[in-house]
Design a binder for these strands. Structure first.
Lengths: 367, 367
DNA sequence: CTTGTGCAATGGTGCGTACAAGTTATAAAT
DNA sequence: ATTTATAACTTGTACGCACCATTGCACAAG
């Protein structure tokens, strides 16, 4: 027992630490009680407590009053700020709340706090957000790219994130040049396919598509739209698609549609980029004296609150945004803990589901 | 020295910490020796050492063997993290998005970032949030109290905020014992008055009120409800009010109402705590084969999205949540910049506005 | 089967003591 | 005047004791 040169509490502390690090004592294991240690090592309880207090302070162990002292479950250790940034395009009441709920649930459970930022779907603002994030110390980043279909002009900032080893996860969309970066999103191609196929199966023959041009979701939904048409033997007609951008989202779709209706271009079904546009469309159609779904069927996307509770119950695509958020958070935690992609257990692509309500009519002649 | 309730070492620790933070003891200053402290505070040296060890661990002081204990040179940090915490009850899609938008607009403009937390309207979680906030360094706090009508059981945490000079602003409700603290809210009493008066003016004579019991908003709206009734010469009948709590919000109101309807208790108008409840109520009424508003009028509160777009267009109370958020943020900025209340230019009480739609019917016989 | 009660074990607080070890001022010795 | 020894401080280590608060469990009571 001649560990001379060192103090008694230090010897005990090192001994216990060694057992924990070596894996001899596993996380959750109970240490001998203070009195037992005191007896075994022939030192006073006070000295044992001193040793334990150091280990507790360093996060190796956790004492529980009345129960015992246990090896810390997360002996791995945190050193970060405990903050994780979430950058979305909008803080609207559309899908943001459900998304953030999912993220919050996972991160709060794991002791992290959420810093929110929004870009207003503007690249300039996204840059500013990233710069601010870099100045503060965050442990990770969940980001919904702004205008993901346009070439990403500030890769430099993402390189900096890599440089500082701040993990990040894309949600909803992704930049084409950064496909290899972790991202979680909905299978929008499949979603676009599902609604279009549904209309086709109901016997629609003049289907109009309205899509957003400046994000990957819009492009993907359009892809599914085209795929469904071609599978059913229809040739793809670019004139039967209205594209719009973030900036003209409140005017363009309705106006373009109005013109088409007034020109009597035959339309019996409309696939919309999302529920909001679908309602704009429905309002426009009704103003023209045309009824939904009797004369024109309309589909939405997102299964938002309005889809269920609006004046016309929308047939739409459901995708659990809260799950998407939770998955993104989990994936980010994996990254933070250094788990490589191969061992990842987080799904990356959510399957959309068609929700059938009352905004589409069966136009098949017989059957 | 009746700091009873706390441990001795904790009391001493806080005392010393206070002296350091307040600037009473400056960096480099020497603290009294352990024996001196032990004598002055009438506690043993061992206990003094425990207090000092905590301060040392937290970086406030540094002990030098044989020389003394000194205030850490880098104790006076505080550069401002640029983070502001926002604690709400829920992250739902009900009013949270508009609120956070208003807050975000003001704070982002001023270079701050927002850390969001939510309490699920639970006191326990609120405590945890506050503790986390205290550990991180935030420059300020905007908080929506949970169950504000119930006695605030953790003033200690708010005292700590005061102690660390972290300004905070209450929104929506406030704790009765903390009325003097800055808070921004809607004039809920007036709101309750407005809807009730409206129903009375339309000739309703059997008005039922449904209110939430565990927050100040519910109490205030009820106050306005009673005021309007009494002004119109109706005696207040407690049986014509249904109270519910956060926990039974999804069941209680509907069930209680259903029983009343089945017992044929005359009701021709219902004042609801908010739009969500109003819709629950409408669904319940319709299930009983009674029509809204022909037989029973229903009013909501909040002018949320569903009020405008739901199956019945709700007459409700509009209050710009984004403005409330923006005002709270501005008031908080004033506090951070040390502007005293007298010079404040931020309004504290928002006036609600009645929005008339289609959920109430004029029941006056003639005119 | 549930509920309450008492007991033993555990960590938490607090006190007292003693000695070790580093620092500093001062007095004594050179 | 310089050096040296010493006393008087300081913090650090170590032991022992007493009591409190919480927990888990066995056992009794309902």
């Amino acid at each position: 027992m001649s560990d001379s040169g060192k103090t008694k509490y230090y010897v005990l502390m090192e001994e216990l630490k060694k057992e924990i690090i070596s894996g001899d004592k596993k996380p959750g294991d109970r240490l001998p009680s203070e009195n037992q240690l005191s007896e075994v090592y022939h030192i006073s309880r006070h000295t044992v407590r001193k040793a334990l207090s150091i280990l507790e302070q360093e996060g190796y162990i956790e004492a529980e009053h009345g129960r015992g002292t246990f090896v810390s479950r997360k002996a791995g250790r945190k050193k970060g700020s405990g903050n994780i940034a979430v950058i979305t395009t909008y803080l609207s009441d559309y899908i943001f709340p459900r998304l953030i709920q999912g993220i919050d649930q996972v991160l709060t459970e794991n002791g992290y706090s959420i810093i929110i930022k929004n870009t207003g779907n503007s690249r300039l603002k996204e840059s500013r957000c990233l710069e601010e994030i870099l100045e503060k110390d965050v442990d990770g980043l969940i980001i919904e790219p702004s205008k993901s279909e346009i070439l990403c002009g500030h890769r430099g900032l993402y390189d900096k994130l890599d440089f500082y080893k701040i993990p990040y996860v894309f949600i909803q969309g992704y930049y084409a040049q950064m496909k290899s970066k972790p991202h979680i999103r909905l299978d929008d191609c499949m979603g676009g396919y599902l609604v279009t196929k549904y209309l086709l199966d109901l016997g629609h023959e003049h289907i109009l598509g309205i899509f957003k041009a400046d994000d990957s979701q819009g492009r993907d939904r359009h892809k599914g739209f085209v795929k469904a048409l071609q599978e059913s033997g229809f040739s793809y007609d670019p004139d039967m698609v209205i594209w719009y951008h973030t900036e003209d989202r409140s005017a363009k779709p309705s106006e373009a549609l109005k013109i088409m209706l007034e020109e009597k271009i035959p339309v019996d079904g409309i696939v919309c980029y999302n529920d909001q546009i679908a309602f704009e469309v429905i309002k426009t159609i009704q103003k023209e004296g045309i009824s939904v779904p009797e004369e024109i069927s309309v589909t939405g996307y997102d299964n938002s609150f309005i889809a269920e509770n609006g004046m016309v119950k929308l047939t739409t695509i459901a995708h659990p945004q809260d799950r998407l958020g939770a998955m993104a958070a989990e994936l980010l935690l994996e990254k933070i803990h250094g788990i490589p992609d191969e061992e990842s257990r987080v799904e990356r692509l959510l399957k959309p589901v068609l929700v059938i309500r009352e905004s589409c009519k069966d136009r098949r002649k017989n059957q």
